[in-house]
């Protein structure tokens, strides 16, 4: 029986023989890297809780906001930014370094000699990163609700939609950053170059609520800025549907993803 099967061409995608084993092993090995796990899973929540407890304005109610938000603590307006930060941290810091390191160490080339296509290793890690993002976002949301008393999203479906699109846009950008880098360090440098401006326009340092108009306008056209703005609109539910932000995120994905896949070097 097995002898007959050997003549059948191997398949790509999750149907490839051994994909389950590959995924499980990659997840297990990924969890052994404390720095990657910390930045992907814990860092956003830690930053949010730390700032929420340390900055006095963050615990006072937002008295000038429309009801019912006038009773919510100030940190509420910062939560969407932190969710965007969680997406950006994985997409621009941990993921490109991972992928470039696979190339640097010859892991992609090594897999190319086996029946398992190296595309599946990248696929497995995209899934692992999505799982990490779900964990880190849930931790930030639940942590801020329990510890800081932040109310839940007014429009959870919009938040979910914007989160999915933010992930696809930012992961596409991360894939492009990793596409050509010969070394993990190169990808890390390039990722950082994009990471810090992205954080600035998504309100990490200057909160969205007090951001000057020109910055907000630039932010709208950047993937992480659009993500933070869209998440804010969905969380508060007072400004309708964030159509412009959703279109921007779709646009970035449509441009960046095929480019990242096309340029990606597998050896």
């Amino acid at each position: 029986m097995t002898a007959v099967e050997t003549t059948v061409a191997p398949r790509a995608g999750i149907k490839a023989r051994g994909f389950g084993k590959l995924f499980a092993t990659e997840l297990k090995v990924w969890l052994r890297d404390p720095a990657a796990v910390f930045f992907a899973l814990v860092f956003p929540s830690l930053l949010l809780l730390g700032l929420g407890l340390a900055i006095p304005d963050f615990s006072k109610p937002m008295t000038d906001a429309p009801p019912p938000w006038n009773e919510a603590p100030g940190v509420t307006s910062y939560l969407p930014t932190i969710i965007a930060l969680a997406v950006g941290t994985i997409a621009l810091t941990t993921m490109p370094v991972q992928f470039a390191t696979f190339r640097e160490k010859g892991i992609l080339k090594r897999l190319s000699t086996t029946p398992m296509p190296p595309q599946n290793l990248i696929g497995a890690h995209l899934v692992i990163n999505v799982l990490a993002l779900i964990v880190s976002t849930c931790a930030a949301v639940v942590g801020s609700m329990v510890v800081l008393g932040v109310p839940f999203a007014a429009d959870p479906l919009t938040v979910l939609l914007v989160l999915v699109l933010s992930t696809s846009a930012m992961f596409s950008l991360g894939l492009l950053v990793a596409a050509r880098a010969e070394k993990g360090a190169t990808a890390s440098g390039l990722g950082m170059l994009l990471y810090f401006p992205s954080l600035m326009f998504s309100g990490v340092w200057v909160p969205l609520s007090v951001m000057p108009d020109w910055m907000e306008t630039i932010g709208l056209y950047l993937p992480l800025g659009a993500a933070a703005q869209g998440l804010t609109v969905g969380w508060f539910g007072t400004d309708g549907f964030p159509l412009a932000q959703v279109l921007v995120l779709v646009g970035w994905t449509v441009v960046l993803f095929p480019l990242g896949v096309k340029l990606f070097r597998w050896t």
Binding site: T6, R17, K21, L22, K28, T114, M116
Partner: peptide
């Protein structure tokens, strides 16, 4: 052991 297991799982035999 893990490396052998995962690489082994790619092959029919």
């Amino acid at each position: 052991g893990e490396a052998l297991d995962v690489f082994g799982s790619f092959y029919p035999q």
